[in-house]
Design a protein around this nucleic acid. Structure first.
Lengths: 216, 216
DNA sequence: GTCCGTGCTGTGAACGCGCTGAGGACACCG
DNA sequence: CGGTGTCCTCAGCGCGTTCACAGCACGGAC
């Protein structure tokens, strides 16, 4: 999840709340920084404030869409009349919320966005006999369900979007864990171990000195 | 865009609709014809019906993938239970849509597919019968896989980006080894030896007093 | 042929990567 | 307040990898 919000308090609150739900969250505090991050990709959705230093939320979405990025966008704005919902949706946002909003509502809208709002995303990731459904948060292996914890799920999700590629530990720490938090690189090894135990020993290959690879 | 669909009405509708969106569209109405067209290349993506005369959509994709074609494929099937999503994804399709589907959804999925690009599009280095895939960290020689250690891989990578050129030992120490570390220049000789053993004696020529050259 | 310098290779040792089990911190729930 | 589950750190261990060293092969100059 990408959060673009310049008010530090709100940004921190969103980050904490979403992390509690199992999302990996990156925060950008200016328009240009947000645009860069969104371009870079790898996010499932973006929460975007309208009022931003450097580049307004409207303009940010407009540029993103112009560049053919179809990331679901949930827009936030103060309810002061100057900006309104129609403008937001016009420029390419997928949903719109006016401040102040309840956290529960935000979460519900976000989930709706991820579910429906990814009409642009294949519903299921499949690699070999593994299936992962991001919206339903379910994983099956050879048609039998596997239960994963939030972190395990996030890790597998990331790997399944890059089947066969070698993914370094740093990359995993950045995207599956939170970039800001300092977690020991060992955590990756530990969770790879957990996944191996649940999915089968040979699904995740170790490439010494380079990272891990999901067998295709 | 390549559309492989035997129902004339649906094929025509797809063609018109996609052309209206600015795509150039070719239509094939049988499995074999579709496979030929896809092989021929030049398409950004393929929309593929499962039920086809001559060759099923499943089989078509399977063969295509077996031949190392990585064109994005969006599969269409009637929702009659006989075929299902898992089968489609298993044989190498990238996304799956059951008939009847809304045109808007089709378009959205298609755009997503194009944005993601070909799955695992191999950006490989190739010199002679050597192949090196940096992302997947794989090396093959005449289609048989060769396992290399991290250092060996880095060395071969560097050389394969400069095929036919003479690369000095100092240059290799600077780039393949860490500049800061003081390693004996002999290490290069050692690792060239390892590579020769794994790749074949004559792949790496010694140029006395100057360095090494990867035979083209 | 002799001599020197450069490159090759087998041996072995140290290092460090990655795996695992144990256990603590923390949240959630009854 | 204990029970349960998740997340993560830590320490120890096994083993592959890396590299230094030394002796040898070979090419070139004369």
């Amino acid at each position: 999840m990408l959060v673009v919000e310049d008010e530090a308090r709100l940004a921190a609150a969103l980050q904490r709340g979403l992390q509690a739900e199992g999302f990996a969250v990156d925060v950008a505090t200016t328009g240009p920084a947000g645009l860069d991050a969104a371009r870079h990709g790898g996010y499932d959705a973006m929460i975007l404030d309208v009022m931003l230093p450097g580049l307004s939320g409207y303009e940010l979405v407009r540029r993103l869409r112009a560049e053919q990025h179809w990331l679901p966008v949930l827009m936030l704005s103060a309810k002061d009349g100057e900006y309104d919902q129609a403008d937001g949706l016009d420029c390419g946002a997928d949903d719109y919320l006016t401040k102040p909003f309840s956290y529960v509502v935000l979460l519900a809208r976000l989930r709706a966005l991820l579910r429906r709002g990814a009409p642009e995303r294949p519903t299921v990731l499949a690699v070999g006999d593994l299936r992962l459904d991001p919206a339903r948060r379910r994983v099956t292996r050879a048609d039998t369900e596997v239960t994963l914890t939030a972190r395990e799920f996030a890790l597998l999700d990331y790997l399944m979007r890059r089947p066969g590629q070698v993914v370094s530990k740093v990359e995993l720490l950045d995207h599956v864990w939170d970039a800001s938090l300092e977690t020991a690189p060992n955590a990756v090894e530990v969770y790879v171990g957990y996944l191996r135990r649940k999915l089968g020993r040979d699904r995740l290959e170790t490439v010494r000195g380079a990272g891990y690879r999901l067998a295709t």
